[in-house]
Design a binder for these strands. Sequence first.
RNA 1: GCCCCCGUAGCUCAGGGGAUAGAGCGCCGCCCUCCGGAGGCGGAAGCGGAGGUUCGAAUCCUCCCGGGGGCACCA
Length: 554
Amino acid sequence: MTPEQLSTTIVGALTSLSEAGAISLPDGVPAQVLVERPKVKEHGDYATNIALQLGKKAGKNPREFAQLLADQLATADGIASAEIAGPGFLNIRVAAGAQGALAPQIVAAGTSYGTSTLYAGQKVNLEFVSANPTGPIHIGGVRWAAVGDSLGRILTAIGADVTREYYFNDHGVQIDRFARSLLADARGEDAPEDGYGGQYISDIAATVVATVPGAADLPDDEALETFRAQGVDQMFTEIKQSLHDFGVDFDVFFHENDLHESGAVDRAIARLRELGMMYEQDDATWLRTSDFGDDKDRVVIKSDGEPAYISGDLAYYLDKRERGFDRCLIMLGADHHGYVSRMLAMCAAFGDTPKVNLELLIGQLVNLVKDGAPLRMSKRAGTVITLEDLVDLIGVDASRYALARYSMDSTIDLDLDLWASQTSDNPVYYVQYAHARLSSIIRNAVDLGVTIDEATFDPSLLAVEQEGALLRSLADYPKVVARAAELREPHRVARYLEDTASAFHKFYDVAHVLPKGDEEPTDLHRARLMLVAATRQVIANGLGLLGVTAPERM
RNA sequence: GCCCCCGUAGCUCAGGGGAUAGAGCGCCGCCCUCCGGAGGCGGAAGCGGAGGUUCGAAUCCUCCCGGGGGCACCA
């Protein structure tokens, strides 16, 4: 009995009551009802507020309505009891057998447990990181790498066809500054005033010189072009490698340059012109974004005839839509939130639906704390902490978990001493430890001759309170995944895993799974082992969605 | 000045309009003849403030006070 099944059961009961004329629902019987887990265990396994919601509409007081529903539910399969509480809550207890039946289902489903078809057939483009190749990925980008990749996994789990995309800005003045910085370094000159600093500039400059001997001695124009092309290439290779080592692989690296060279920018502008969304003023060409909620209109072609930055965004968005993406998601840092309204307006100007065809996910910044003080300087980049710095300090698993564990709406302070601790308590180890412990039990079971078999499994044996609690936690998983996907909130998966790990430890504390000493394996041992196997599967699946390893041993 | 995010336990953060607001860390006190004590149990401790909507608000709305980040014919 999962919450979804319970919801269906309640809908069935409402239907019966309605058909029997016991209640009259002006709006009809709802397709599903909210079933939640009470905070207080005395309130039962599940609770629903449906009587509070429908009572008034049905012309009855909520408690009276709840009583009718409770009586009807009492006859339903899998329901042990239904009691009215407070103003009209219905507290429901599920029969032990109905609850335990989930365990073998999870084991049979394996890695597919928790997946669904909510987004089946939807093509989703997920753009994240997209850092300029002028330096290593810094801590802000790392958050999007962790969260974005996890979100991609979660959306895939609900059936979406996800493309991870990195918008590679190789077009503008940032790149020029980068090239000039490299050249200056290679020539032993001071870095340009507006240039990039840090050891990595020297490293890359040296690599360029090694690849193209004499590059620094070329005439300025040629030298700059060589350092630009080679440097961007080097930097980008490095970025891809670090992301790959971080477990993040993109399907598409999209070059901004291509938009300009292919005429895509011109086409996008022409399209908007046809739609009547453009006008000329002060020798510039403007897009009417203020018609769609933006503060003011935006210049698309500057008075000098050059395209403004937004022109690339227009073309890029149109390109994604033409590639067949129903939903374009873009993850940006809080320092870019100013773009949101103009981007959504741009989407509307094309005749699309903002927040459906185009969604901008804004995430807040990350501060790192070590030894109680903010950590700012990188060994290699000098100015900011990089992805490699973070991985060196706490490892890939802890990095990904730590960054994905918090709501993106929160500015977070990561205590590196906590996340680096491998022997002390630390949320990622708490969850991984549970997985290792579960794996260990399963290993030992083999030695002791305890086997799980769906045919002989008796769900009613899982009657201890902690077993029920753990089963209910496992039953929550599909909904947690669906909700994390729909809200674009991967942190829900991490929090769920912590709750489930806790439920497991509580179970483990009171229920011995394997035979002690010379004891012969019993049905109870086998039933509990089934629960252990199901729990291990769920935790492994959840960690997989976060891109964190599920260790068999630690 | 305008816009976005945040303000919940000593710290870092969860909390789909529901009942007695949770977790980890830290602090105090307990629990190992047996499957991994990297665990479990108990305790102290909290929704920035004021109004409003609602049967019911940490959650929705308004204002105020704090903190962070943005407001180019830059990219």
